[in-house]
């Protein structure tokens, strides 16, 4: 992956890149003096509810499936990774302390806002994946529906998973699931929107906070999604998105003592190395499943159940004597 330092003004390079919608400059005007220059987006990280550049000042070029330059993404550094863990930790108490109903409404709000930006997500998928618009539409719709699905889970999983325990003695005893804490989500590489949504939504639905390492080659949908999160009442720090190199960020995040769990979906052949690193602080690990390398179409199951909820939950059992 090419890496570049951000030490010069970017607008020159960007002016030459083709515009996203493929519009051509009007021919009757001198090509050197466009009637109106499209305003292009600078893709940055999403950290603590804000969009900072990498502290390292680095970026890397992101290209479409056919090799056309799309944009520059921030190349997150180790320090960005550490900052994002600290930010996620800070947000954990507040987010896990929200009522389940409130978290459900916020997740539903994500779906609402995302639906409004359907065209933008679809165009981006077409560009990133080289797929047809019809396919892209399908994946975007599925991603929106996935948020609705998990919005509904927020206030149900505790009853489904927890319960009363009929102990042989005069004790009130019940078990309830609680979020594990800070979860690092390595988003699937070939499924930058629906795959990402499918792994992120269950993590935050139950009250965990997340550090997402986006698809390395197709990071733009992740930042686009971050913009949706930032305008959907998701508190800052609940989701943090890093774009960059899994091989560079992974070793630090997986061995980080303040990370409680890992979803290794997008780690490819580094999964074993990362699971080993996680063992040092007994970080919980969800190994990559068969869908991890399958592209967006592998994530179309509309009812994944609790399979991605329970790996990031702890069961707490509380006892109290019964008596007068």
């Amino acid at each position: 992956m090419a890496e570049r330092r951000e030490n010069k003004k970017k607008d020159k390079g960007e002016a030459k890149a083709p515009t996203k919608d493929g519009a051509k400059a009007p021919t009757q005007v001198d090509a050197e003096v466009p009637a109106r220059l499209a305003v292009k987006k600078t893709y940055k990280l999403y950290l603590g509810g804000a969009f900072p550049r990498s502290e390292s000042g680095r970026s890397y070029p992101v290209t479409s499936a056919d090799g056309t330059h799309l944009a520059n993404a921030s190349l997150a550094s180790r320090k960005d990774a550490r900052d994002s863990v600290a930010t996620a930790r800070k947000a954990f108490g507040g987010w896990s302390g929200r009522t389940a109903y409130n978290r459900g409404q916020i997740l539903y709000r994500i779906a609402e806002v995302m639906e409004g930006r359907h065209a933008q997500f679809a165009e981006q998928l077409v560009a990133a994946q080289g797929i047809t618009r019809a396919k892209a539409d399908r994946y975007v719709r599925a991603a929106v529906d996935r948020w609705v699905y998990y919005a509904g889970w927020t206030d149900k999983f505790a009853q489904v998973i927890g319960g009363a325990n009929p102990v042989a003695g005069p004790y009130y005893n019940h078990s309830a699931p609680e979020p594990t804490g800070v979860v690092v989500v390595f988003a699937p590489q070939g499924a930058p929107l629906l795959g990402l949504t499918s792994v992120l939504a269950p993590v935050i639905a139950t009250g965990n906070t997340a550090v997402v390492v986006s698809s390395q080659t197709a990071p733009l949908p992740a930042i686009e999604l971050a913009e949706v999160l930032a305008t959907s009442d998701v508190p800052g720090g609940v989701v943090n998105v890093l774009t960059g190199n899994v091989g560079e960020l992974g070793p630090h995040l997986t061995a980080h003592a303040d990370v409680d769990a890992l979803d290794l979906a997008g780690t490819g052949d580094r999964a074993v190395e990362f699971e080993r690193a996680a063992a040092t602080t007994l970080t919980r690990v969800l190994r990559p499943g068969p869908e991890a390398d399958g592209g967006e179409q592998a994530w179309l199951d509309t009812d994944p159940g609790t399979s991605r909820l329970t790996p990031f939950l702890e069961t707490k059992t509380v006892w109290h004597p019964v008596g007068v």
Partner: peptide
């Protein structure tokens, strides 16, 4: 913590998840 004993301690039961 996985097990909270309130106004009691070190109670165990096969029906009660521990960990």
């Amino acid at each position: 913590a996985g097990v909270i004993w309130s106004n009691t301690f070190n109670k165990f039961d096969p029906t009660s998840p521990f960990g």
